[in-house]
Computed example of a mutant assay.
Amino acid sequence: MSRGTRAPRAVRAAAVALALAAGTVVAAPPAGACACGGLVDGPAYDTSVSSETAVLQWDGTTQTVLLELDALSNAPEVGLILPTPAPAEVALADPEVFRELDALTAPRAVVSDHRWWPELGFGSGSDGAGGAAGVAVLGEVRLGPLDVTTLGASDAGSLGAWLTERGFQLPETIQTALAPYVQDGWSFVAARLAPEEAATFDGTLQPLRVTFPSSSLVYPMRMSAVADDTQSTRTYVLADHRVDRVDPTAEAYEPTVRFAGRVDPATVESAELAALLRAGGFVTSHEQVFTEPGTEIVSDFVFAPAAADVAYTPTYSVVADRRIGPFFAGPVLAFAGVLALAVLVIWSGRRRRAPAPTLAPRPAGA
Score class of each variant (00 low, 15 high):
residue 285 S to L: 14
residue 285 S to V: 15
residue 286 H to S: 03
residue 286 H to A: 06
residue 286 H to F: 13
residue 288 Q to K: 04
residue 289 V to F: 03
residue 290 F to A: 01
residue 291 T to V: 15
residue 291 T to A: 15
residue 293 P to H: 02
residue 293 P to F: 06
residue 294 G to E: 07
residue 294 G to S: 10
residue 296 E to D: 15
residue 296 E to H: 11
residue 297 I to D: 03
residue 297 I to E: 02
residue 297 I to H: 03
residue 299 S to D: 04
residue 300 D to I: 03
residue 300 D to T: 09
residue 301 F to K: 11
residue 301 F to L: 15
residue 302 V to P: 01
residue 304 A to K: 08
residue 304 A to W: 00
residue 305 P to Y: 01
residue 306 A to F: 08
residue 306 A to H: 09
residue 306 A to K: 12
residue 307 A to Y: 11
residue 307 A to T: 04
residue 308 A to N: 10
residue 308 A to I: 01
residue 308 A to R: 13
residue 308 A to L: 11
residue 309 D to F: 08
residue 310 V to M: 10
residue 311 A to Y: 09
residue 311 A to W: 07
residue 311 A to Q: 09
residue 311 A to S: 11
residue 311 A to F: 02
residue 312 Y to E: 11
residue 312 Y to D: 07
residue 313 T to Y: 09
residue 313 T to H: 08
residue 313 T to M: 13
residue 313 T to G: 15
residue 313 T to F: 04
residue 314 P to C: 01
residue 315 T to D: 00
residue 315 T to K: 02
residue 317 S to N: 13
residue 317 S to C: 09
residue 317 S to A: 15
residue 319 V to Q: 14
residue 320 A to G: 15
residue 320 A to V: 12
residue 320 A to S: 14
residue 323 R to M: 08
residue 323 R to E: 06
residue 323 R to I: 06
residue 325 G to W: 11
residue 326 P to I: 11
residue 326 P to D: 11
residue 326 P to N: 12
residue 327 F to C: 07
residue 328 F to C: 03
residue 328 F to Q: 05
residue 329 A to G: 01
residue 329 A to S: 11
residue 329 A to D: 00
